[in-house]
Amino acid sequence: MMDYIWAFLVGGSICMIAQILMDKTNLTPARILVYFVTAGVILGAIGVYEPLVKLGKAGATVPLPGFGYSLAKGAIREVEKYGLIGAFTGGVKATSAGIAAAVFFGYIMALLFNPKTKN
């Protein structure tokens, strides 16, 4: 049960920070996502994000900074294993499921559904 409470609090807070930034600065969603992913990479690299993942679990990995964290963690892990080439293979490997799923399901959904007008 504690899992869910922490996931809710950590994940909700990350989203709330993004919302406040969007309201206050007129940043578009796409820009927010770019900043958050990059922030996730940097925070992941310097080890700040790790405790958040320990605490919030899915609350820290499901939001986009978690995607950045996985990229950074993957790059570092592969550098450890394979040297310099790991910098290029590690990030995408660690996030491959999410990226491939998004591309594949994106295509499938486009085949199946048509966009609807808003009311």
């Binding site: 969007m22 007129n26 578009t28 969603p29 966009p115 609807k116 007008t117 808003k118």
Partner: peptide, 20 residues
């Protein structure tokens, strides 16, 4: 037309954004 203008000037219709 709302939908033709939306896709040209803003976001795809199914994108979950907020309007100021």
């Amino acid at each position: 037309h709302f939908s033709s203008a939306e896709r040209q000037f803003r976001f795809p219709l199914e994108h979950g954004n907020q309007r100021p």
